[in-house]
Design a protein around this nucleic acid. Structure first.
Lengths: 133, 133, 133, 133
DNA sequence: GTGGTCTAGACCACC
DNA sequence: GTGGTCTAGACCACA
């Protein structure tokens, strides 16, 4: 039964961001948001590679960097699991810090475009509503 | 020494986005916002390269792409100027479209982090206020 | 329940060194130091595997390699015992040779870090004192 | 003139530790010890690969991980340099912390071998003297 | 010129 | 079965 794993990752092959980065970002966010909890197993390198139709090394690279970043742990002979230290921070403020940089960039761009605060807030509100639909 | 030009561009050398892209985006936004008007001269390739401590080829590439995009025009002997057709769009909606992609990305990330709408709106509001100070 | 066996081994699952190596090294040192004497029984594969929460194959592999190295002997129906030829060497110099490699590695690293002899000696001295407390 | 670069790295191809790890460790220690200072350029991937006779990807992997660890910075189109934040800590205590783990392991092994403190100290002293010769 | 990414395929160590 | 390492070779983005 591998329906879980095929749902776990989604990649856009012809996106600007490299595949291994897409995987790293997704896993990181799944862990932080609590969808993946400490001890949860990840799909094996070969399995993920097969389903995503990419080279196993690409998956392996992503896993290695997630391990280096302390997000995953290697269970020798078994596979990769979410690291024990990785409690999903229920603290919203910590998670907010993660999206702060991109919002800061948006604010910078808005400034250069001389956009009024109200318009930006309104657009963001719309986009957030669309997401929920 | 053209003091305006040294204020005109700002690049972050160790950012993820390539330098030529940073320049293109900034010039585009300055034009569309009306900071730069049709006929305004841009700093010469040499000057910009010197001040930004960047390879002249990089500036040249950015200018060429802006020219190809119809934002700038090449005046023989004078350098680059803002193209005549480039009216600053007073229409806020058009300018809003430019920051839509980055806000969409922020919304995507926020979704994966399971962040509530209110928190994001609040953070954006704070950042916009900081900007004005 | 053999309380001795649970004290006998200690493994660090997320260490760099493989589990079977950790077991081999520990048993070897315990034998050479005299903690384990010729004829002493070792915990059964199953028991050790259960207590260490490790794959029985891993224990078995370690025991087999210790047998091949002449440290252990296989007693039919009784399991593994310390080999008869294995006298604890009272000769300190022989035992010192065993920790020589790791000290050599420490010295190499210290050299690359440009650390003075005195500092290293002092740190080692502290660590040895802590151990005794 | 590449005599400098050929002196910079040394690898033992048939060592147990992977090549990319050997490079990471060496660069890290060279930076920490002050042999490499912030802004110093490293040999290019292709150059290092050629001299060490290994695949360029192996070097690239090491550089990437050093960048991820904040030791190196990527100068786009140029090459890798030592990161600006990487001041060699003149503080000996900080550098001592780096060799603490291996000394701790040595102490653990010495304990299992029932070795007296004096013998260990003496052996370390000898090894440190040999190094200086 | 620089490094980055990906592929295909091989071999190894560990459990 | 698991992941790790390395090679050879290709193509791309950036300066």
């Amino acid at each position: 039964m591998n329906s879980q794993s095929s749902l776990m990752f989604q990649i856009q092959p012809s996106s600007g961001t490299p595949i291994y980065r897409q995987i790293i970002d997704q896993v990181s966010r799944l862990v932080i948001s609590g969808f993946l909890k400490p001890g949860d197993e990840l799909p094996s390198v070969r399995q993920a590679a097969g389903e995503l139709e990419v080279n196993p090394m690409t998956i392996s690279k992503a896993y290695s960097m997630l391990e280096a970043g302390g997000v995953l742990e290697r269970m020798r002979g078994k596979g990769m699991i979410v690291a024990s230290g990785q409690d999903s921070s229920k603290d919203i403020r910590k998670r907010l810090e993660i999206i702060r940089p991109i919002l800061e960039e948006a604010v910078t761009q808005a400034g250069q475009l001389a956009l009024p605060k109200e318009s930006i807030m309104e657009l963001l509100s719309e986009l957030l509503e669309e997401k929920n639909e």
